[in-house]
Write a protein that binds this DNA or RNA. Structure first.
Lengths: 223, 223
DNA sequence: ACGATGTAACTATCCAGTTAGATACATCAG
DNA sequence: CTGATGTATCTAACTGGATAGTTACATCGT
């Protein structure tokens, strides 16, 4: 690759920001060298990547920006995660696992599920953005994710058999409908938000929508 | 503009692919020069851009690929549309206008609206992808779009006043819910599709979901 | 002294946007 | 009808800046 570049000595002394007896008056003002902690650094990188990917998507995200946000060196991304794509996968898996854990489907109670999911997505906006970008850029769900959906679908089917949920709609369709409904306000087109005047994200407005959402879900699930 | 370029004679003869008495045996084998038609070229570019942006988003789309898909020269994108961003805007506007025209909300009949929207999105997959990418990358709805939503919202509100739609949910919320429901199957996570076995896009399956969707919408809109 | 952790500088590639034309077609002068 | 001239349409090749990924070291903890 780079056959002609034999060492570059003493370059160090000229730029080392740590050397205390540096020539100038420039005593480095409390640049703590940060205690080394691979786990913490990796976690900071994952967090930074989550924000960056949420904002810009896979293609729009910049590896340099991720390193900067994490206050870590770019190289570490390649050490810990491999490359940009696998970092994205790591972020996606992490987010998917977090939602699955935070929003269960107790006893196939889709109304409770809808409420929990609305609250979670409201509190964690990145989840929705990551999920959507993932759906477009890449596919390949993880085994964890499949298992999560399998459990939820079985819970819905059981509740249908026991008459607690309407049975004239397939379990998957019913679940997909309700899941989608939970995002209807937060994912609504900007134009709709503008036309429906008032701040769409004001706490009272969100509370009002939450009630509307739950009323609608209740209507759907009983038939 | 071009102060130092006085005429440019006979350069032509050296490369003219049309000159029938060209030296070599290389008779250009039916490379039709394509009749010049600015409108058609522009339309081909817009169509190609729509596909490219739908597949890759704004950041992921490649201007060179768009030109190639259109069978046109890259330069023409800059002549006709300005730059990549404005080409994206053109695509978004075009798609938004198309959906607005194709999916009306007659008399605030949300069930009919849901059916029409489901059918349209099914037949035009790019619309959904473009809309989603737009929501993330850029905002700024057009005046046409605002007007479209205003009309639809008023139709819903009117139907609510006349008792044809439930009135305990704000018009905007009800509309957002129904609109979102129409995409629940097509936008469902891959994992859900896999877990609910069978081909999710098979005609019979789609017909089944369509029925489920309409049943659910009917439940929602009456209360 | 050795592996794990960290850093700055570098490179090869890609890609949006530009330059400098070339070709088709219309119109008009002779 | 004929060639000259202007204009809209189209093209290949280039450029400068950005960006993913690498190299060659440095330093810490043990």
């Amino acid at each position: 690759m780079n056959p002609v570049s034999p060492a570059r000595p003493q370059a160090k002394a000229t730029v080392d920001p740590m050397s205390s007896q540096a020539a100038g008056t420039e005593l480095p003002p409390t640049i703590q060298p940060r205690p080394r902690d691979a786990g913490a650094t990796k976690a900071r990188l994952l967090r930074a990547a989550t924000e960056e990917f949420a904002e810009h998507g896979l293609a729009g995200a910049r590896v340099d920006r991720i390193a900067e946000r994490a206050g870590a060196n770019k190289r570490l991304i390649y050490v810990y995660f491999g490359d940009k794509d696998r970092l994205f996968d790591a972020v996606v898996d992490d987010q998917a696992r977090a939602v699955m854990a935070a929003v269960p489907l107790p006893d196939g109670d889709l109304a409770a599920f809808a409420a929990a999911r609305f609250d979670y997505v409201l509190a964690n906006p990145t989840v929705r953005r990551i999920a959507h970008w993932r759906a477009f850029e890449r596919t390949e769900p993880t085994e964890d994710e499949l298992a999560g959906y399998r459990i939820r679908l079985e819970a819905v089917a059981a509740a249908q058999r026991e008459g607690r949920l309407r049975a004239d709609i397939p379990a998957a369709d019913l679940f997909a409908l309700v899941m989608r409904m939970t995002e209807s306000w937060l994912a609504a087109p900007t134009a709709l938000w503008i036309v429906a005047d008032g701040d769409p994200l004001a706490p009272e407005r969100l509370a009002e929508h939450r009630q509307a959402l739950l009323a609608a879900v209740r209507s759907v699930i009983v038939g």
